[in-house]
């Protein structure tokens, strides 16, 4: 079977300095894969490369064997990959529902969805993340946690195959983290969406991820099941190194 996503020798240099270097991995349909690593390891850059927000210096990205590396973000989106960024990127002049509608309208592969259908799908995905009660409010009235969920609803409304999440649990409290973990789990279980997920909150990673990829200095340090990876001495060292600097 062809993996959903294949990343091969993916490399990105910023002015000569490698942010991502020779990264190779694959993801199967329906997996939840976490990417962890110290600050500046290149996690966000990796996701941006896959989402089309950055152009790779070298290497290939394939979605179901179709090359998507180097395509502009909107085309990558229509191929079925969507991303929720570290800081929520919502449309501030619109309401919550209208934000989600935009995702529903322009996300799908086969052209723009009409307004009525988009409204329906948007309402559906707002309900999925539990924001339906806030549908008619302007986004600026939402708190960070809610804005992240809205961003997620916006992404889901376009019915992606692969969802990229960048540290969506940073800065949340215990209850909110648990709520987020539940939602990500349901995204995979109920919607069948594959999730590639960058996270610093280790408890959430251990609870949710089926496989963990560890990045350090732009390269893959190791990968495997969460409990195995977390006991790996190289991983502990990478994190300890960071802790000592901090």
């Amino acid at each position: 079977m062809i993996p959903l996503l294949e990343v091969d020798d993916l490399t990105k240099h910023f002015g000569g300095l490698p942010a991502v270097h020779g990264v190779t991995f694959g993801i199967d349909d329906g997996e939840i894969v976490a990417v962890v690593g110290p600050n500046g390891a290149g996690k966000s850059t990796l996701l941006k490369l896959i989402a089309g927000l950055e152009r790779p210096t070298r290497g290939s990205i394939r979605l179901r064997d179709e090359p998507v590396g180097g395509l502009p973000a909107h085309q990558v989106r229509r191929k079925g990959i969507t991303m929720v960024m570290q800081t929520p990127r919502t449309f501030p002049s619109l309401t919550v529902l209208e934000n989600a509608m935009l995702g529903a309208m322009f996300g799908p592969a086969h052209g723009v969805i009409d307004e009525r259908e988009a409204r329906r799908r948007a309402a559906e995905s707002l309900a999925f993340v539990g924001l339906e009660a806030l549908a008619d409010l302007p986004v600026e009235t939402l708190n960070l946690h809610q804005q992240r969920f809205l961003d997620l609803a916006k992404a889901l409304a376009g019915r992606p195959q692969l969802l990229l999440l960048d540290e969506v649990m940073a800065g949340l409290n215990e209850t909110e983290i648990r709520a987020s973990v539940e939602i990500v789990r349901r995204v995979r279980d109920k919607l069948g969406t594959t999730v590639l997920w960058v996270e610093h909150v280790m408890s959430a990673v251990i609870e949710l991820a089926e496989r963990v990829i560890v990045l350090d200095f732009g390269s893959v340090l190791t990968e495997g099941a969460p409990d195995v990876v977390m006991r790996d001495s190289r991983v502990i060292e990478a994190y300890l190194g960071e802790a000592q600097i901090a």
């Binding site: 927000l53 909107h74 989106r77 960024m85 935009l102 996300g107």
Partner: peptide, 24 residues
């Protein structure tokens, strides 16, 4: 029309619009 929706989105945030699938 949907063009108007695209306009509103890209005027608010270009990157977010691209991520939504809009060819800015």
């Amino acid at each position: 029309s949907h063009v108007g929706w695209a306009f509103r989105a890209l005027r608010d945030d270009e990157t977010a619009a691209e991520l939504t699938g809009i060819d800015v």
